[in-house]
């Protein structure tokens, strides 16, 4: 794509601040194509890429959790509190707290963190349960309060505020639409019908969810409308899922093609000597050889 033309003529072999270099090109193409080779069959290239992925990914996540979840809130926090001027305070949730108290409280958290770590030595001990219990309580409470407000109270408010059957003044009259102006989705008639469908669909689905016990013909019919609403919703979700998955694939293909530029070629400027071409050739060759020698039987 346009990226091909955009690569500067001189590609450096290696640069810590860029991935548009020869070395990165080889790595990126190798890992991408090695993972794709799994589509044919499990093989050593895929296995290498998979294990590097787990190794590098775990290390990366560990560094993030260490830096932001342990170093920051324990080491940096206590360090900052220790070095405050005599009349300064630590702010906790908008409240000024005496530094000694702040440090003391945070040290309790550090000890509880160590208790959690004691699982390594004695998995069934009582010590890890304390921090775990705190974590569960905090998590449950914050989830319960936030979600009840936003997903129950404000959702219902939203239906009342927006789902009322009134349409905005800016809506088009049907006659104007028929005369050729605007789109049907802007007409008052369309919006009114839509809002009625929304309210009926919502009520029917909620009724379908709630009345799971034995019910009469009337409720059954309502429940059926709920099922139809849900199926159309799931269908829309399926359509969007396809959209998303394909987008990922396109980006990968695009990224590999970036390095198919002759500027990335080894020994002369031929596209056949670029990382994607050479790596694909090697992977195919090895897979064919393994099939011929019967070596890939164990892999399946």
């Amino acid at each position: 794509m346009n990226m091909l033309a955009l690569q500067a003529a001189e590609v450096p072999f290696f640069d810590w601040t860029s991935t548009n270099t020869h070395l990165s090109g080889w790595l990126i193409c190798f890992f991408t194509l090695a993972i794709f080779s799994f589509l044919y069959k499990d093989n050593p290239f895929y296995k290498i890429a998979e294990h590097v992925f787990v190794g590098v990914g775990t290390a990366y996540f560990a560094l993030q959790y260490y830096n932001e979840g342990i170093r920051g809130p324990i080491v940096e926090h206590i360090d900052r509190a220790t070095n405050l001027a005599p009349n300064e305070f630590v702010t906790l949730g908008g409240v000024d707290v005496d530094p000694t108290v702040a440090i003391g409280v945070r040290l309790v958290a550090a000890v509880l963190g160590l208790m959690l770590l004691s699982r390594v030595i004695k998995p069934s001990g009582w010590a890890p349960r304390w921090p775990l219990a705190l974590m569960v309580g905090i998590y449950a409470a914050i989830k319960m309060t936030g979600e009840t407000q936003s997903k129950l109270v404000q959702q219902i408010q939203g239906v009342v505020k927006d789902g009322g059957l009134t349409v905005p003044d800016s809506a088009l009259a049907w006659s104007d639409f028929m005369a050729g102006s605007g789109s049907i989705t802007q007409t008052a008639a369309y919006l009114t019908v839509g809002k009625i469908v929304l309210v009926i669909g919502l009520l029917a689905t909620l009724i379908h969810f709630m009345f799971t016990f034995k019910r009469g013909a009337g409720l059954n019919a309502v429940s059926r409308v709920g099922i139809v609403t849900l199926m159309l919703t799931f269908g829309a979700m399926f359509g969007f899922t396809v959209l998303g998955r394909i987008a990922l694939l396109i980006e990968r293909v695009e990224n590999v093609f970036t390095f198919a530029d002759p500027n990335y070629a080894v020994l002369g400027e031929s596209a056949y000597l670029t990382p994607p071409a050479l790596i694909t050739a090697v992977i195919i060759l090895v897979l064919v050889l393994r099939k011929m020698t019967g070596k890939d039987v164990e892999a399946t």
């Binding site: 979840g69 905090i138 998590y139």
Partner: peptide, 22 residues
Amino acid sequence: LQAANAELLSWALIFFSVAFLL
């Protein structure tokens, strides 16, 4: 209450991270 809440949330972040390192 706000101070205690802020401190408890920070605790949860710490435990969360320790659990990951575990």
